[in-house]
Design a protein around this nucleic acid. Structure first.
Lengths: 173, 173
DNA sequence: GGCATATATCTTAGTTCTTAGTTACTTAGT
DNA sequence: ACTAAGTAACTAAGAACTAAGATATATGCC
């Protein structure tokens, strides 16, 4: 039970150092993407922690913050538009906007063209909040990412954008 | 209400095209890290979706899969060790191992040196499961990341690793 | 117009975690 | 040995969602 290479594999599916590039065509080098996935997940978790700590200091979740931010930068939006922007389910956006409304940061407004739809709109209090905390939030993110130079951050942005677009595309709508 | 540049800012904190490099020293180019964070979060979400769909097909959550995988690759581990590896709280690891135990994939075993501690150990059924589904899982990830060439994936791994390590380090212990 | 189908939001129930606090045990100091 | 402090896992309560289905409205086809 110890002679086969498939036992106790250390993430790599194939350990042989012989045959380096261009594998048998199937088994097309699974090691590199697996490693990227692990590293990506850890990096995302580490940065997320900074972001969560920051927004939690103002009694917000990252989702709540994201909604305030998008409303601040783009003005009133239909719930469905926000939903697609922040990637939650329809039930989720209802719940989130309820919470923000209970805190007094957003209001619902009827849509004149479509009586099913509702706009979420920042209240003066919500506008004041996001305007006040956004700059420090941006600095928190900048510091969390400061392990890379600005040049490297731009490279990373390019890579992550292309990776994400491809992944999203192959995931159906 | 439309003449000041702080109104309706489009993510960038400063819009002036004059003065390009080396900002006033404070406000040290927040645009690049903000963009990276947005793109990173989207990319992570898109890839996560593939991963979740894949593991859900075997009635597992990503966390459950992660535990099975780490136990498979490293052998029996104390719950606290797994906890640190997969990044959950102590209550979370209890809950997760309970679920995996209820499904018959892992068992708890006493630790001879420390009677507070418990090992989680794969059952034969758990071993068979992870051995069976891991290869296809790896291929799913490879395909989700295939928007980048192998070379670019390696670059991305390097960048994400350094970024993640720095973010984790500046996040207290 | 009237009907079928699609869409926008909401509701309910359930899942997956976290937080805070507990129990049991271990280790270090005296 | 005895006590204080630390650590490992567990428990209870609750937060933040998701999934599935309900409701109300809109749209296109006949």
């Amino acid at each position: 039970m110890n002679s086969r290479s498939s036992d106790h594999a250390t993430v790599r599916t194939d350990t042989k150092p012989t045959r380096r590039k261009s594998a048998t065509s199937a088994d097309d080098d699974l090691e590199v993407p697996l490693k990227l996935w692990v590293v990506l997940a850890r990096a995302y978790a580490a940065v997320s922690r900074h972001v969560e700590t920051d927004v939690a200091a103002h009694d917000l979740t990252p989702m709540e913050f994201g909604i305030l931010e998008v409303l601040y930068h783009r003005g009133p939006m239909l719930l469905g538009e926000i939903q697609r922007k922040v990637l939650v389910t329809s039930g989720g956006i209802t719940y989130l906007v309820d919470r923000l409304a209970a805190k007094g940061f957003v209001e619902r407004q009827e849509c004149p063209n479509d009586r099913r739809a509702r706009y979420a709109v920042l209240t003066p209090s919500g506008t004041a909040l996001i305007k006040r905390i956004f700059p420090a939030h941006a600095r928190t993110i900048a510091q969390a990412l400061s392990g890379l130079s600005t040049r490297e951050q731009s490279e990373a942005t390019d890579l992550m954008r292309r990776m994400g677009l491809a992944a999203a595309a192959s995931s159906a709508k």
